[in-house]
């Protein structure tokens, strides 16, 4: 029942979600959770995730004629 752009968007949303899970919830977080990095590193990762989300939604709105979900 979805437009191809919507499908693409959904796929990208899930991919970004998985990337977010990988960064934040997997043991890979040991990479950024060290004292050698600045104390605000978690914020930077968080901000990066927000920016990527913003870019993804901007991409969707610019391409989908009926940009409701």
């Amino acid at each position: 029942m979805k437009h191809p752009i919507q499908n693409q968007f959904y796929e990208r949303v899930v991919l970004l979600f998985i990337a977010g899970l990988f960064l934040l919830c997997s043991p890979a977080r040991i990479i950024w959770a060290t004292t050698s990095l600045p104390w605000f590193t978690p914020y930077m990762i968080w901000l990066m995730l927000i920016i990527l989300t913003w870019l993804l939604y901007r991409w969707y709105i610019s391409r989908c004629e009926h940009d409701e979900f």
Binding site: F9, Y10, V13, V14, L16, F17, G20, L21, L24, W46, L49, I50, T53, F69
Partner: peptide, 10 residues
């Protein structure tokens, strides 16, 4: 919450 809102279309 950030992850939940990322998945808002779903």
């Amino acid at each position: 919450v950030t992850l939940a809102y990322l998945l808002s279309p779903i």
